[in-house]
Structures are given as C-alpha cells and as structure tokens.
Design a binder for these strands. Structure first.
Length: 320
DNA sequence: AAGATACGCAACCGCACGCCA
DNA sequence: TTGGCGTGCGGTTGCGTATCT
C-alpha cells in the first residue's frame, strides 16, 4: 500500500509560476487565508498542486518576505546558528525576519559554505581544516596515521580542485610552521596539468606534515589570535568557541571585516553542551527528548542561553 | 560572437510528524 | 490503536543568467 499522492501529477502544471498565477493565488489567500492547501488551487482556479501553491506562497509571495541581499548581520547569524544546530534551516530562518528556510539554505549552499572553505574552515564542523587533521591524528595510532593523509586528500580533493581552478593556494611548508593556505586571486584555468599535479603533491605533503606533527600544530595554534584565547570545553567538543576568528589567522590579512571580526568571538557553550548531550543520547539509540526539543526549536534558545556572542535576547524568536 | 561552464535561486520530491476521526 | 490527511522540513533538481574561453 503506497502513500496517496497529494495531487494528480498529470493534470497539474509544474515549473515556473506566471504573474497571473501569482495574482490568483495572492488574491485568493488574501480573501480566504491559507487553510487547506489541497483545496486552494481548485478554488482559486489554478492548475497547480496544493503543495506547489503552499511553497510558492511561503517562499515567495508572502508579503512579509525580504527579497534582497543578505546583510552582514544576517550572515553572522546564519553562521553562528549553523555551528550550533546544523542544517536546521527552519530554525535558523526563524531568527531572520523575512527570510525563509529555502532562502537560508540556498544562501548557505551557494555562498557561505564556499566562503568558509576558502578560509580553510570546514563548513560542517566550523573548525579549521588543519586543526581537524591534527585532532584526528592525535586520536590515532601511528599505523593508522600513515593512511590518514591519503584518506583526507580523498575527502577534500574535489573541494581543493575546485578552489585551485579559482584561486591560487600558497603553501608555507617551512619546518616548524603549520599548513597554511592563503588565497590570492589568479587565473588558474590555464594552469598546466603537471603544475596542478605538483600543487596536489604539495597538498599531500602539507596534510602529511599536519598529521605527523600534530604537537607542532597545536603548539603554534594558528587559529588562536590573542593571548588568553584558548580552547575551552565547547571548542574541544567540536564547536568554535573563541579560539579563532573566521578569515583572520589563515588569510593573514588585516582588513578584518565586521563579519570576520565578530563571528565566533564568544565562548559560552550552553547550546553546544546541549547538542553534545543530544549526540550522546542519539548514539545510544533512538531520538532523545533533547532531540525532540531541538527538532521543535525549543531548549537551545532558552532565556539565558548565549550562542557564542549572540545572546538569546538578540534572537528574533527565542523559544522557551 | 558563440559555445561552454559556473552560478544562483525557485521549485520539486519524498519522508516525518502531528492531528483527528 | 490505527489510518488518513495536512503540513513542515531538508535534500535535490532544473532552468535562467552571468561569466569565461
């Protein structure tokens, strides 16, 4: 027994909406509201699936939506919240008035993810790549470490190659220094194949060095920018809590933007603790209460919760 | 100038969940 | 308790446009 489809796919129109369809839908909803999406297209005289109408309304036609560029402040909020809740786009969007989950998701996938990668920060964990490598290496015995560079290269290969065709990557491999990648614009698309291979060899070498000398990397703490700015509990559990600034230590530039200056400058780990708790419970099987709370958007935005440097009273929709 | 490629965004798909009879 | 229904959500796809060669 399969699930009943939400509409007859053959008899409904799909694809781009026309202004005429938008008008029909908007005026119908203005008069009758959004109750029962299945009936709306029929009553509004639209050859559309109810689900399609709902998406069009929630993602585009709603009068309270913003359609312009994301601001720096919005970017910061997305990055900070993503570090805490991951791909919970609706949760993140709830903190950005006028933005939909689809907006946030698209913006993350097309801009922010690449921006972080370009800074040498893993967009999944929000940690520097080199730190990730060192952290993994310290947990492995020497025979395993020997294979890590190859595996890591496999993981990062596509991203690296993508970056290599867009930007020059400078690798500083002097003894006693960590793997540092700096970005400088250059036209690499006409780069000879053997030169690319050579660059990839450099990447391999750098990764191997990062793995084989984790102590050296930790000692140098490239992500640490100020005295007293150390790892804290939250950071060591996988959350960026104040040990580095996005864009600063890796690129080595001084034109710190508002964005790069303030992201991850705090250190409180309330939400991180809760997520860690959640992860543990999930590993023990089944969705935990914390998981349900997280899914519903509660708990992590409790009244005295601080998301790095984003206190809950700055949140648009703190859910208690 | 034309074709190829990359990018951004709107829309779609399918699963999960909650409500209700 | 169960099944139908409506809705929410995250991942993916497809198309129009911009940029590059």
């Amino acid at each position: 027994m399969g699930r009943i489809p939400c509409c007859e796919k053959d008899s409904v129109k799909r694809g781009q909406w026309t202004p005429e369809e938008d008008n029909k839908l908007s005026s119908y909803i203005a008069q009758h509201g959004t109750r029962n999406w299945r009936l709306i297209p029929k009553n509004a005289g639209l050859q559309r699936c109810g689900k399609s109408c709902r998406l069009r309304w929630t993602n585009y036609l709603r009068p309270d939506l913003k359609h312009g560029q994301f601001s720096d402040a919005e970017e910061q909020t997305i990055v900070k919240l993503h570090a805490v809740v991951g791909n919970r786009w609706s949760l993140i969007a709830a903190q950005l008035p006028g933005r939909t989950d689809n907006d946030v998701k698209n913006y993350w996938n097309t801009k922010l993810k690449k921006k972080l990668s370009g800074m040498g920060i893993d967009p999944v964990t929000h940690k520097p790549f080199s730190h990730l490598m060192a952290e993994i290496a310290t947990t492995l015995a020497p025979p395993q470490v020997a294979h890590l560079a190859e595996a890591a290269l496999g993981c990062f290969k596509d991203e690296m190659l993508h970056l290599l065709t867009k930007k020059r990557a400078d690798f500083h491999l002097q003894p006693g220094t960590p793997l540092v990648i700096t970005n400088a614009p250059f036209a690499a698309t006409n780069k000879p194949a053997d030169e690319k291979d050579h660059t990839i060899e450099k990447i391999k070498l750098g990764l191997s060095r990062a793995i084989q000398e984790p102590d050296m990397i930790i000692r140098n703490k490239p992500w640490e920018t100020t005295a007293g700015s150390q790892f804290d509990g939250a950071y060591s559990r996988g959350f960026p809590a104040g040990g580095f600034q996005y864009g600063q230590p890796y690129c080595g530039n001084d034109d710190a933007s508002l964005w790069s200056q303030s992201i991850c400058s705090g250190s409180t780990s309330t939400a991180g603790d809760q997520l860690g708790h959640l992860k543990l419970e999930e590993e023990n099987g089944g969705e935990s209460e914390a998981g349900k709370e997280l899914r519903n958007g509660s708990s992590i935005f409790s009244s005295d919760c601080v998301l790095w440097d984003l206190p809950s009273d700055e949140l648009m929709n703190p859910i208690v």
